[in-house]
């Protein structure tokens, strides 16, 4: 009996060990295989010595006294490193300026992506996030690319900021490339094109879908990208998967470049560099 018990414990321990091993390596790999933060294999572009501005939310809670939120990690890390690897200078701004709240789930061990890892050991970007510029004090026309990061926080303050709307109007009219991913394109809602029409009206774009919002069960935010952008006259397009968080879609309409969700950061950044006159790298 003694022996049997001992062996039993050993077997249970071995099974647990194997399970832990498979989970530790298998879960992130499995999620990637499904499409979450799938590695970017497409063409990359560069624009030496030119500049990009990443705009993030300053809103840090879901509803009154709700859970902590903010910008989704990979939605600023992936484009930031695509821009810097594309030999650009990058600055980070937010609606209120100062420290940018980051969605706490972003850097979970099975979710965090390669650029997230890079951010976590990069004091330069950490400093830019901790001391972001306030959009009111930034001249958007000095940048070649204006990129709007998403995350649940953006659903609160991007689409309702008249300052952001005006700044994007100025940048777009100055011939700059604008866009973003996930909830970021909400920031385009109040912007106008050269003729004074709403920038998104009649334009092809993508952003996070109502389906993904429902699937993740976070419907209490004041704005939903698909619903609000469609209502503003945008020709909304998207891809779908059995869960939309695994889908990926990027739309380029002239100088307007948008990505469906957190999976699109790399591609949107590269398509923006390309639209701004970048060359292959």
């Amino acid at each position: 009996m003694e022996l049997f018990k001992k062996r039993g414990i050993l077997i249970v321990a071995a099974v647990l060990l194997v399970f832990a091993f498979v989970a530790y390596f298998g879960l992130p790999a499995g999620l990637r295989a499904l499409g979450l933060h799938a590695p970017y294999k497409g063409q990359r572009y560069m624009l030496k010595d030119r500049t990009a501005l990443i705009v993030c939310t300053s809103h840090d809670t879901l509803g009154e006294g709700g859970a902590k939120t903010g910008v989704f990690g990979s939605e600023f890390t992936a484009p930031y490193y695509e821009f810097t690897d594309g030999r650009m200078r990058v600055e980070v701004a937010s609606i209120q300026g100062g420290p940018i709240p980051i969605e706490p789930i972003s850097f979970n061990w099975f979710i965090k992506s390669e650029p997230d890892e890079r951010y976590l050991s990069d004091p330069i970007l950490q400093d830019k996030i901790a001391h972001s510029l306030r959009i009111n004090e930034v001249d958007f026309t000095l940048y070649d690319i204006i990129y709007l990061a998403g995350g649940w926080g953006a659903a609160y303050d991007l689409g309702t900021s008249t300052v952001l709307g005006d700044k994007i109007t100025q940048a777009y009219r100055a011939g700059k490339v604008v866009g973003g991913v996930c909830h970021g394109p909400l920031g385009l809602l109040l912007a106008l094109d050269e003729k004074g029409h709403p920038l998104v009206k009649g334009r092809r774009l993508t952003a996070v879908t109502d389906k993904q919002v429902r699937e993740l069960g976070i419907t209490q935010t004041p704005q939903h990208p698909e619903r609000n952008l469609r209502a503003a006259g945008a020709l909304f397009e998207s891809s779908t998967a059995f869960r939309d968080m695994f889908a990926n879609h990027v739309t380029v309409d002239g100088r307007l470049v948008t990505g469906q969700n957190q999976n699109a950061g790399h591609e949107v950044a590269n398509k923006m560099i390309q639209a701004a006159g970048g060359t292959k790298r």
Binding site: Q43, R44, K48, D49, R87, K280
Partner: peptide, 17 residues
């Protein structure tokens, strides 16, 4: 120097192209 040399993977893509 990151800003005026070619990354290893970029060189591989150039060779491919």
């Amino acid at each position: 120097i990151l800003n005026y040399h070619t990354f290893t993977e970029e060189a591989a893509r150039i060779a491919r192209d």
